[in-house]
Simulated scan of single mutants.
Amino acid sequence: MIAIDHLSRPGRLHDVSFEARPGRVTGFLGPNGAGKTSTLRVLLGLDRARDGTALVAGRRYADWPRPLTVVGALLDGSGAHRARSARAHLRWMAASNGLPRSRVDEVLDLVGLSAEAGKRAGRFSLGMSRRLGLAAALLGDPPVLILDEPVNGLDPSGIRWMREFLRSSAGEGRTVLLSSHLMGELAGVADDVVIIDRGRVVASGTVGEVTAGHPTLEDAFLALTAGGTTW
Rank of each mutant, 00 (worst) to 15 (best):
I2R: 00
A3S: 15
H6V: 05
S8F: 06
H14L: 03
D15A: 02
D15I: 00
S17E: 08
F18I: 09
E19G: 00
E19S: 10
A20T: 03
G23M: 11
N32W: 02
G33T: 06
T37D: 01
S38G: 07
T39P: 01
L40V: 14
L40G: 04
R41T: 08
V42T: 11
L43M: 09
G45N: 09
R50F: 12
G52P: 10
T53R: 13
V56D: 01
Y61C: 05
P65N: 10
V71S: 07
L75R: 12
G77V: 10
S78Y: 03
G79R: 05
H81S: 03
R82I: 00
L90Q: 06
R91L: 15
R91K: 12
M93N: 11
A95W: 15
A95E: 15
N97T: 09
G98C: 09
L99H: 08
P100R: 12
P100M: 13
R101C: 04
S102D: 15
R103K: 12
R103A: 15
V104K: 03
V104W: 02
D105P: 03
D105F: 04
D105C: 06
V107T: 09
L108V: 04
L110H: 14
L110I: 00
G118H: 11
A121M: 09
A121V: 08
G122T: 13
S125Y: 10
L126G: 08
S129M: 13
R130T: 11
R130L: 05
D141T: 02
V144G: 04
D148A: 03
E149H: 01
L154P: 04
L154F: 06
S157C: 00
S157A: 13
I159D: 06
F165C: 01
R167S: 05
A170W: 02
E172W: 02
L178E: 00
S179N: 07
L182C: 02
G184W: 03
G184V: 10
E185Y: 04
V193Q: 08
V193L: 15
D197I: 02
G199Q: 05
V201H: 08
V201E: 06
V202Q: 10
T206Y: 08
V207P: 01
V210S: 08
V210E: 07
G213A: 02
H214P: 08
P215Q: 13
T216E: 12
L217Y: 05
D219N: 02
A223W: 00
G227A: 10
G227I: 10
G228S: 02
G228F: 01
T229M: 14
T230L: 02
T230G: 00
